[in-house]
């Protein structure tokens, strides 16, 4: 018991240090700032001004996807990015979705587009509820 407590206490030290180091890189309030989220209704209202990105795996995209959506997932990022860049323009809004509210792929793709794409992109939004929410809105 004493040994376990020592280890538990020791791990706090680098953990706190890292939390301080990353204080500007992560919000403790929300996983994705509300300003970077968009609902299906809002995104649909953007019409032609929005580019939809499907961040799910290839087989799920092949099965079905939002009409006009471009596939861009992390597994084949380098292969798929050019086809997205071909339809992208700076004034358009980008809506990224994955399978559901609990999936992570859309956040990751959105993060990479904002921070790693050349040029870095603005107006990148994550779709609340993802593909599941889109299906519900279609019914």
């Amino acid at each position: 018991m004493r040994q376990a407590l020592i280890l538990v206490a020791l791990a706090f030290l680098p953990g706190i240090g890292q939390a301080i180091y990353f204080r500007d890189k992560v919000s403790w309030q929300l996983p994705v700032p509300a300003s970077e989220m968009v609902t299906v209704v809002q995104a649909r209202a953007w019409g032609e001004n929005a580019i939809w990105i499907d961040a799910r795996p290839d087989e799920e995209f092949a099965r079905d996807h939002v009409p006009g959506a471009v596939s861009l997932n992390e597994d084949r990022w380098n292969e798929l990015l050019p086809q997205f860049l071909a339809v992208w323009s700076p004034e358009k809004k980008i809506v990224v979705y994955c399978s559901s509210q609990s999936c992570n792929a859309s956040r990751e793709v959105a993060h990479r587009l904002r921070n790693q794409a050349q040029p870095p992109m603005q107006n990148v939004f994550v779709l609340e509820g993802g593909w599941e929410e889109w299906l519900k809105s279609r019914q």
């Binding site: 040994q3 020592i6 280890l7 706090f12 953990g15 890292q18």
Partner: peptide
Amino acid sequence: FYLPWLEIFCGIALILRRLYLGG
């Protein structure tokens, strides 16, 4: 921020045989 370091310290405890049972 915390759990990865706890895993690392517990792993090291096993490797070094220090605080072994706790790890």
